[in-house]
Design a binder for these strands. Structure first.
Lengths: 192, 192
DNA sequence: AGTTCACATGAACAGACGTTCAGCACTTAA
DNA sequence: TTAAGTGCTGAACGTCTGTTCATGTGAACT
């Protein structure tokens, strides 16, 4: 039963840890539990990750980087601000759907305060990207002359809200299309 | 040091528990910690609450009821759908500001899955209230003919997003006014 | 003074936790 | 055949957890 590939083991641990953290939160998930699910011994975990904290931070970093790459691709390749915002919202929502487990991790336990520095940096970067697009839209006369920074915060809020909705009630989550529609055109019929 | 009022003790426990759950999450907050902060012994806690779970659920119920009452007052007293939606969004955000600690509790640990039944019921109720207002707005020709249910979900998403933003980054949270503005009028200049 | 009773204590218990480490199993190289 | 080295094991350690319970305290009654 020995001499399995170390790479495979690490992959198993990552997968098991993600699932455990997702299901039970940081404190709720135990190293024993993760080890068992990864098909490895408790001690084995410590061959690949210094401790529980490092294991959790590793997963967070990995996922944030994945998302950032997706966002970069959109903003590099799409010129039209309206299209870019739509694509970003859609991408975020799709990403949330695909990586629900990761997102759940972030809404529990130490989840959110854990690795706060990394996350803050991540959100700051995202904020800059969106604000930039919004400002472009305003400058081009496509968007109403709102405060780009405030709008950015609201839009990021909406996306975060989607994530929370998903966690609360995964079968009854709002449509990405409607989300874009509402943000772009608003609720009111008359546009003064 | 004895013979203090039981009412006062329970109040102290509630306050200490709320703070502890807020700071450290459900698993992270210990009964010892809560007892110490409440100025009571560990055993004393169990005179007022059956166990940790019940203590936490009690706090959740209390806050949800508070919020529900606020919402009811708005929807009972405001006729105009536009006004009602604005007031609801503002009230939610104000409530979040005032009860930040409670909200933080909900984003951690077991926080969200904890007492899921109560919360789901709460959110269902809120959803119905909002959907009702949106539908009225559509029927009266004030809002664009969107799917009221989908719009409701987005709006609730925005509010939840605000809450998350608040937890992530309390000093840099978006303005309630802008939130209403964006939801009502949208981002686009031209309204087709 | 004696009894009652609500309020309160904190040591003790059983179990779970993260982490460590002496040692095993197997492959590879000498 | 031996030695080195990698991958891994799981009992053991110390610490913390939620919960219990025999015991205490003092005000309010008879």
């Amino acid at each position: 039963m020995n001499r399995r590939s170390a790479l495979k083991s690490k992959e198993n641990i990552k997968k098991a840890a993600l699932e455990a953290f997702s299901k039970y939160g940081y404190n709720g998930a135990s190293m024993r539990m993760i080890a068992h699910e990864a098909g490895i011994s408790v001690g084995g975990l410590y061959l690949y990750f210094k401790n529980k904290e490092e294991l959790c931070l590793f997963l967070i970093k990995e996922k944030l980087n994945e998302f950032s790459k997706n966002a970069q691709i959109i903003f590099e390749n799409v010129e039209d601000p309206i299209e870019a915002i739509s694509r970003y919202i859609n991408m975020s929502i799709e990403y949330a759907k695909r990586h629900r487990e990761f997102i759940i991790t972030q809404t529990r336990d130490q989840g959110f305060t854990f690795g706060m520095d990394i996350k803050r940096e991540f959100f700051e970067d995202q904020k800059k990207l969106i604000k930039n697009i919004i400002q472009q839209g305003i400058d081009k006369g496509l968007f109403r002359p709102l405060d780009a920074f405030e709008v950015t915060k609201v839009i990021m809020g909406v996306i975060r809200g989607y994530i929370l909705s998903f966690v609360m009630d995964p079968d009854n989550v709002f449509d990405a299309e409607y989300c874009c529609e509402l943000i772009l055109k608003g609720l009111l019929k008359e546009n003064p």
